[in-house]
């Protein structure tokens, strides 16, 4: 079956169409642009481009997979709301995936030795991270922290963003079993910056 994979948790605008077989995940087409400010502009055009390069139409999709972060807020939402609206109007399920899990899956597929940490840029001199055990399963995280807080001895994988294959692989079991998807809840990991105002300042000189 054809699955659309989307991720905007990193500066990459990622869209791809994968064929999800009973055993294998095969990428048919993907479009990735590295531009942290272009998620809103490019994501839907990338989706349409990937679908047409896969020789398909949106109507052929059986499911949508979406990375739900953790990621800096603004771009992350572009991917999630796009996935939600596409799935809604195409009447197919949308499966959330932790974007770091998809990166871990890519690393394992590329032959990385687990255990390892997946670390992405959280801006403000912090990183998002999660730890993966010998089998490549997440054992801790995702969390946001200063880089110094991470175990310096741990191996780290260097993938900057999840691939459509990694996203689809991470959700494959749920999709194959036609499980009811969890809601597409973003992994913000930080509270909004907002302060409750204190006492009003007087305007008159006292």
């Amino acid at each position: 079956m054809l699955v659309l994979a989307i991720d905007t948790a990193t500066p990459a605008v990622t869209a791809g169409v994968v064929e999800l077989g009973s055993e294998r995940v095969t990428v048919l087409a993907e479009r990735v642009t590295h531009d942290a400010r272009a998620h809103g502009e490019l994501l839907t055009p990338h989706v349409l481009d990937a679908v047409s390069r896969a020789g398909a139409t949106l109507r052929d999709l059986a499911a949508v997979v979406c990375g739900v972060g953790p990621g800096p807020f603004t771009g992350l939402r572009a991917g999630i709301v796009t996935a939600a609206a596409l799935a809604d109007s195409l009447d197919v399920p949308a499966y959330p995936v932790c974007s770091l899990d998809a990166i871990a899956s890519d690393a394992v597929a590329d032959g990385a030795d687990a255990p390892f940490l997946v670390v992405t840029d959280a801006r403000r001199r912090e990183v998002y991270w999660a730890a993966y055990d010998r089998e490549g399963h997440r054992s801790r995280g995702p969390e946001v922290a200063a880089p110094a807080a991470l175990d310096p001895a741990a191996r780290r994988v260097e993938h900057a963003h999840p691939s459509p294959a990694g996203l689809a692989r991470t959700a494959a079991t749920a999709i194959r079993a036609s499980e009811a998807p969890a809601p597409l809840t973003p992994l913000y990991l930080r509270r909004p910056d907002a302060a409750v105002p204190g006492a009003r300042k007087r305007v008159s000189a006292s």
């Binding site: 998620h39 809103g40 994501l43 839907t44 989706v47 349409l48 949106l58 807020f73 603004t74 939402r77 572009a78 991917g79 709301v81 796009t82 996935a83 939600a84 609206a85 596409l86 809604d88 109007s89 195409l90």
Partner: peptide, 17 residues
Amino acid sequence: AGALLVGLSAAKAYAAA
């Protein structure tokens, strides 16, 4: 900006689908 992005992204997806 961030608020506009949510509606615009959703509308693009609905229009495309």
